[in-house]
Amino acid sequence: MDIAALVAWVVTALGGFYLLGTWLQRGGIRQQQSGTSRLPAPVIFGHFALAAIGLVVWIIYVVADESALAWTAFGLLLPVALLGFVMLARWIPVYRARAAAAATPAATPTQPADQTVPAERHFPLPVVLAHGLFAVVTLVLVLLTALGIGGS
């Protein structure tokens, strides 16, 4: 189960890297001053840093098989999940606005300038959903492994 958690965590991380790269490429950092982006940089980078540290701890756990490391990784995942839910809650209105704009035929010829469009509007829905799904799977597998359920 520890290897399954590792695979799920890596897949989650790959999706997260893609979303972070999209946000940075579309000007998410620059949009912090104007308030265009609804995702605060400290939340994004905190989510990323804690997830990356947790992944390193999990890799060490897989090698060393010390239960304290499994619980440490799980403890790191809790704030990662909380920050992820915060970002999801702030992203949903941006996604809905994009969907509403796409449904309005009059809105397409007059697209707003790229700096007025939140960077997170460019997140593909399948990537967001897959990232969230694999994150939940990772959290559950890490908890089950820390509890000693399913063997290691």
Score class of each variant (00 low, 15 high):
73 A>E: 12
43 V>N: 14
105 P>F: 00
150 G>R: 02
52 A>K: 05
105 P>K: 02
5 A>N: 02
135 A>N: 09
36 T>D: 11
115 Q>K: 02
88 L>T: 05
96 R>K: 04
140 V>R: 04
27 G>M: 05
68 A>M: 12
99 A>C: 00
54 G>F: 14
81 A>S: 12
19 L>A: 08
150 G>I: 03
33 Q>L: 15
39 L>G: 12
79 P>W: 14
88 L>N: 03
14 L>M: 07
11 V>E: 02
84 G>R: 12
83 L>P: 09
144 L>D: 07
76 L>V: 13
88 L>Q: 04
13 A>N: 08
59 I>N: 14
5 A>V: 03
25 Q>W: 10
135 A>I: 10
17 F>V: 02
10 V>G: 10
21 G>Q: 06
111 Q>H: 03
128 V>E: 06
31 Q>F: 12
105 P>E: 01
30 R>I: 11
33 Q>D: 14
73 A>W: 10
18 Y>A: 09
4 A>K: 03
145 T>M: 01
30 R>Q: 11
111 Q>L: 05
64 A>E: 11
92 I>L: 01
2 D>K: 03
54 G>E: 11
22 T>E: 02
18 Y>W: 08
46 G>F: 14
130 A>I: 09
9 W>G: 09
16 G>C: 11
72 T>R: 11
3 I>N: 01
91 W>Q: 08
5 A>T: 03
11 V>Q: 03
83 L>S: 12
119 A>L: 06
12 T>E: 05
78 L>S: 13
4 A>P: 01
